[in-house]
Amino acid sequence: MDGSQGELFAASPLDPSEVRRFLADNPDFLKGDDGLLAELGLTVATSNVVEFAPLARVHAAHQEETKQRQMLEEVARANFAAQAQTHGAVVDLLDARNNADLARRVDEVARTRFGLAAGVIALECDGLPPAGWRGLVQGQVDLILDGPHRLARMGFAPTALGLFGDDAGEIASMAMVRMAIWEPARQGLLAFGSHDPEGFTPEMGSELVAFLARVAERTAERWPLL
């Protein structure tokens, strides 16, 4: 073969069917050429099996991607369910007939809609609070929230156990949001208690609880405190 014929032969494209036929007729060709195997990213797993390492890595990456997507979908479903329950809770609170009924509905929402141990409204006052509400002394909201400028507190707070009365022994974590009701504003709290120590943690956002607190404030203001 002269040079021109060699160049013509080298430039001719390979027919995939011929390559396939050659490999089928010579099954040991790949296994015997370590250099070619390395270039192709293949390894010989056993005496007669060629492992496609790149494909294995792709498969592993696909499995991890699927796992991450499923986790994101679960979080999205949980968020959607929480928002749906919160919207239902808002309707329940707005239907309250008086302050006592509002306190009852807060506890009912906590137990039936969110699976919690209890829900409480508390108010700093000199006399008796509205029926069903927890009475607090002046400055107690700041003490419970651990500071005069804190609007919310998530997690376990021993100073808040008294809010839950007879249910205090069941409370392992709390979500609490500051409230300001009526004019002049009176300091109060909307508090939810969970049986689960991880039910509410300091890392959690308080947006949904704060939203419910604002609804409770506006609802309570229908009935001025005498």
Rank of each mutant, 00 (worst) to 15 (best):
C125E: 02
G135E: 12
H195Y: 10
G165P: 02
G188H: 07
R77L: 09
L212Q: 10
V75W: 02
E74H: 08
Q140F: 09
A118K: 11
L123R: 13
V120C: 04
P197I: 07
D166I: 08
F200M: 01
R113K: 15
F164D: 05
N99P: 00
G127L: 06
D146F: 00
G165Y: 00
R186F: 01
V90G: 00
D146S: 11
H195E: 02
N79G: 08
V120M: 09
R97H: 08
V91T: 06
C125D: 05
F156K: 12
F156P: 09
L94F: 03
E207F: 12
D142T: 04
L102Q: 04
V90H: 01
C125N: 06
L136P: 09
D196E: 08
A84M: 11
A82W: 01
L143W: 13
A180K: 12
A185C: 02
F156L: 13
A103R: 11
N98E: 05
L208T: 13
L163F: 08
F211I: 00
S206C: 11
G155N: 05
L93E: 02
A157Q: 15
M154V: 02
A191W: 06
T201E: 13
A89N: 12
R178H: 02
G193I: 10
V91E: 01
H195V: 00
D101R: 01
N98A: 06
A103C: 13
A100S: 12
L102V: 04
V209C: 06
F211P: 00
D92A: 14
D126I: 03
L94A: 08
N79Y: 04
F80G: 03
F200T: 00
V90F: 03
A172G: 02
H87D: 11
A117K: 11
N98T: 06
L94C: 12
R111W: 02
V120T: 13
I171V: 15
L151M: 13
R153T: 06
L94H: 04
G139L: 03
D126W: 00
L136F: 10
E108L: 13
A84S: 14
R77V: 04
A122S: 13
F192V: 08
L143R: 15
Q187L: 15
G132N: 11
R178Q: 03
M176P: 04
G188A: 05
V106M: 13
M154K: 06
R178G: 01
T201I: 14
V109M: 13
D101E: 07
V109I: 15
F80I: 07
L136K: 09
Q187K: 15
A96V: 04
E108W: 11
D167Q: 07
I144M: 12
A89D: 12
A168Y: 02
A172W: 01
N99W: 00
G169Q: 10
M179D: 04
E74K: 11
G193V: 09
P129K: 05
Q187Y: 13
L145Q: 04
D196M: 05
R153L: 11
R111Q: 15
E203R: 15
V91Q: 02
S206F: 08
F211R: 14
A122V: 13
E170C: 00
A100T: 10
P158G: 05
A100L: 03
D196T: 05
H195S: 04
M204A: 07
A81M: 07
L161I: 07
L208Y: 07
A117E: 14
E203V: 13
D95N: 12
G155V: 03
R153I: 06
D166C: 01
F200V: 01
L161A: 10
E207G: 14
